[in-house]
């Protein structure tokens, strides 16, 4: 089975970046996630595919702590983070983006990235204005460059186009020193050109930064990840290389059969 491939592939690699054991999440009577087991090596880039309502976003929410899982445990670089507060996980190097952009509409791009850097460094309570020479401000420059927002640094977030807001979502995840990032449908609503931009941005990330990307568009997913997990009805039902997944009849059934495979 594909899971065995994953396991053997990762044998002997010390602590995994992410390790999920039997993670489940209930919303009342609804089981949004159940029995998720996942091992992701440091620097690995994984795509998660699945139909609408499969539980992909819920999976991210349990990893970042937006919701706590109702069962199972989560380890991040060997440390059990199952019950940690969200900000504690972020300070350990975990980052995420949101499927629906969660931004500070009244701040500028530069201020937003500055805050994202501040959130994982010291002087968070500083009552002084950030100096232009501040290293955090310098990082805001380079990150806005990395996500192709050089020209918009001093624009208010609320005035950005949808595509630019999606890019800023990524910028917020890159600030500080991320070790692992969860991208929740970063390509949602993007034009073909913006998609190409996105693929370029992701492929230009430093090699030590691993990520999971949720992506409906198989073509995008396959170009930015080396390994794919399929979710359905709150469960991970298969994992494999992009070719294995593409040729898996069950996957085709789900995608072609409108999500009721």
């Amino acid at each position: 089975m594909a899971t065995n491939v994953a396991a053997s592939r990762l044998q002997g690699t010390g602590a995994n970046a992410l390790e999920l054991d039997g993670v489940g999440r209930q919303f009342g009577a609804l089981t949004a996630l159940s029995g998720i087991n996942m091992r992701i090596a440091p620097g690995e880039r994984r795509a998660v595919l699945g139909s609408n309502g499969a539980g992909k976003t819920t999976l991210f929410n349990t990893i970042t702590g937006d919701f706590h899982p109702t069962s199972g445990s989560i380890r991040f670089f060997g440390e059990d983070i199952t019950t940690l507060a969200v900000h504690e996980r972020i300070r350990r190097g975990l980052r995420r983006t949101y499927q629906i952009s969660q931004l500070f509409t009244n701040l500028t791009v530069r201020e937003s990235i500055y805050l994202a850097y501040r959130g994982v460094s010291r002087n968070r309570f500083s009552l002084l204005r950030p100096r232009v020479s501040d290293s955090a401000m310098a990082q805001a420059e380079s990150i806005s460059h990395a996500v192709h927002l050089d020209g918009e640094r001093d624009k208010t977030v609320g005035t950005l186009s949808h595509g630019q807001q999606r890019q800023l979502e990524i910028a917020l995840a890159l600030a500080g020193a991320p070790r692992f990032i969860l991208f929740d449908e970063p390509a949602a609503g993007l034009s073909p050109t913006e998609r190409r931009d996105l693929i370029e941005i992701l492929n230009a990330l430093p090699k030590h930064i691993g990520y999971i990307i949720i992506e409906h568009d198989l073509d995008v997913a396959l170009r930015v990840s080396e390994y794919v997990s399929m979710m359905h009805n709150g469960q991970l039902f298969t994992e494999g290389t992009p070719e294995e997944i593409e040729n898996d009849p069950r996957v085709q059934e789900i995608y072609l059969g409108g999500g009721h495979g």
Binding site: T64, D66, A85, V86, H87, I90, R91, R95, R96, Y98, Q102, L103, F104, T105, N106, L107, E111, S112, Y114, L115, A116, R118, G119, V120, N123, R124, F125, S126, L127, L128, R129, P130, L172, A175, G176
Partner: peptide, 29 residues
Amino acid sequence: LYGARSTFGLTLQAIRDNPRRMRAIGFNV
């Protein structure tokens, strides 16, 4: 007036705008 543009001032306004995102960039809201 000065503090509104300080690091903490920006933080406070960002929390007002989107506390969930503030947690997700490492702030103890």
